[in-house]
């Protein structure tokens, strides 16, 4: 992690580098983030986060909080950096060798990029659900039990059963699969597989759940079930969701963040963003106008 002065130097250097290309001109129009990026009860805090893929900068100076028991929707056009930012929140970007993250991200005031932070344990606390349902080629039971076994959360079969059943119940899937827990997870429908992945995430008792377009491959009914589930999960977890569906962002989130060309343009209460956004770029995006 860099100090504040180092960070400023870096930002200045980046600015001079950027002015050579067109994207940088648009960046300057974006300016500082509009709205309320910070909350009273933060679970995770990101401050001055920059992300680079090799030479190319993907995220510019993003600061925002994920509050306790809230759903934050990250929206924006393709390539705006919303998924990149989401992946920073549980160090999924560590798996990409050319990716470099600077700035500060904390989970309950603990620096998640600190040297003594074990990324595997971090990802148990900050779970992730992906766009495409990706159950392991194992039984439904083993899919959910996998993380619990890995992290030694159960000491005997009864405890493991308890974790699997509770997780499936929380994910709203148990009633549909109770008679076939030992059949392969890949045999479920798309919507069921996605709920299985959510159950797998919940099984390791995370504090934060990151969702990267969790319903984009699902039909409207499966989508509605997942959205209902997100609302229920909010009671116990902090959730950040990346979505291309603005209606979905409007339906499930309490706050919405709009990203554009790697910058956080605007963040505010979802009610306000969808009826009266403050930035013209946000307005253009959510009304389907040319940027």
């Amino acid at each position: 992690m860099k100090s504040e002065s180092e960070h400023q130097q870096q930002t200045q250097a980046d600015t001079s580098h950027q002015s050579e290309n067109k994207a940088a001109d648009i960046q300057q129009e974006v300016g500082a983030t509009i709205g309320q990026p910070f909350v009273k009860q933060p679970k995770m805090q990101a401050r001055h986060v920059d992300v680079f893929y090799g030479e190319k900068q993907a995220i510019y100076d993003v600061s925002l909080d994920l509050g306790k028991n809230e759903v934050v929707a990250l929206i924006g056009p393709s390539g705006c950096g919303k998924s990149t930012f989401l992946r920073c929140m549980n160090r999924m970007n560590d798996t990409i060798p050319i990716c470099r993250v600077s700035g500060m991200i904390t989970l309950d005031d603990e620096d998640i990029y600190a040297e003594d932070m074990d990324p595997v344990l971090l990802r148990a606390r900050v779970g992730m659900v992906f766009q495409k349902p990706n159950p392991f080629p194992k039984s439904i039971y083993d899919n959910v039990a996998y993380g619990a076994r890995l992290h030694g959360l159960a000491f005997n079969k009864a405890e493991l059963d308890e974790i699997v059943i509770t997780s499936l119940q929380k994910a709203g899937l148990f009633d549909e699969v109770r008679d076939r827990l030992h059949e392969p997870g890949t045999g479920l429908s798309g919507g069921q597989q996605q709920r299985l992945c959510i159950a797998r995430t919940i099984a390791v008792s995370p504090e934060v759940i990151l969702m990267d377009e969790p319903a984009s491959a699902l039909d409207p009914i499966a989508t509605a079930i997942i959205e209902e589930l997100i609302d229920e999960l909010r009671q116990n977890y902090t959730i950040a969701i990346v979505t291309h569906s603005m209606q979905q962002a409007a339906r499930v989130s309490q706050r919405t963040a709009y990203f554009h060309l790697g910058k956080l343009v605007e963040i505010g209460a979802t009610n306000q963003i969808f009826t009266n956004p403050l930035h013209e770029l946000t307005e253009n995006y959510i009304t389907g106008r040319f940027g």
């Binding site: 603005m246 209606q247 409007a250 969808f274 009826t275 009266n276 956004p277 946000t282 307005e283 959510i286 009304t287």
Partner: peptide, 9 residues
């Protein structure tokens, strides 16, 4: 169309 923002208004 599910209008939003200024269109909704």
């Amino acid at each position: 169309r599910q209008p939003a923002a200024s269109d909704l208004r």
